[in-house]
Simulated assay, not measured.
Amino acid sequence: MSDGFQIKYFHSLQVVVSSSNEESSSLVIGCLLPLTDAEQQLSEIKETCYEGKSKKIQLSWTPQVRASCDQTVFSIYKGVRTFDLCQKHRLLITGGMDKLIRLWNPHYSGKPTGILKGHSAPIISIRISSEDNQIFSVSTDCTVKY
């Protein structure tokens, strides 16, 4: 895990979630975009490889900005260093430099549904155990809480 940045793909929800130290975009949940241009390019690359040609392939695909309706942006004090998402419980949890664990409805970025206190150092890892209905967190001082 790098300093203050994490990214995960949740296949069951077809979303990509990323975090940052930026307060205005601390966590972003984004829908996957159609891959029509990328699929076409992959097809062209496969054709070139199978034909044994050594020509250079000009990639024309450019990243697209996701529409605001296709993403949920969370603004969180001091940003988010770690997060987890549980589809079973419809729960998003975040942790970071402010030593707080925030519980969220993943579809609403307004305010957290709950805040857990107890760490005395920044939180660096957090996980939801949907089988046990528990949250596990680790802080920089090696304290584990659940």
Rank of each mutant, 00 (worst) to 15 (best):
M1Q: 11
S2F: 11
Q6Y: 10
Y9V: 05
S12L: 12
L13Y: 00
L13C: 01
V16A: 12
V16E: 03
S18V: 04
S20W: 04
N21T: 03
E23H: 02
S24P: 07
S24V: 04
S24M: 09
S26M: 01
I29H: 07
I29W: 02
C31F: 03
P34N: 11
T36Y: 08
E39C: 10
S43G: 09
E44L: 13
I45C: 14
E47K: 14
T48K: 14
Y50S: 15
E51F: 03
G52A: 06
S54F: 12
K56C: 10
W61M: 14
T62W: 00
D70C: 14
Q71F: 02
T72V: 15
V73L: 02
V73G: 01
F74C: 10
R81F: 09
R81M: 10
R81K: 14
T82P: 08
F83N: 08
D84W: 05
Q87R: 06
R90N: 15
L91V: 05
L91A: 01
L92T: 04
I93G: 07
G96W: 02
M97T: 12
I101L: 14
W104Q: 13
P106V: 03
S109I: 02
S109W: 01
K111T: 10
I115F: 05
L116R: 08
I124Y: 07
I126Y: 06
I126V: 14
I128G: 07
S129I: 05
Q134R: 14
S137A: 00
V138F: 04
C142K: 05
C142Q: 05
K145N: 13
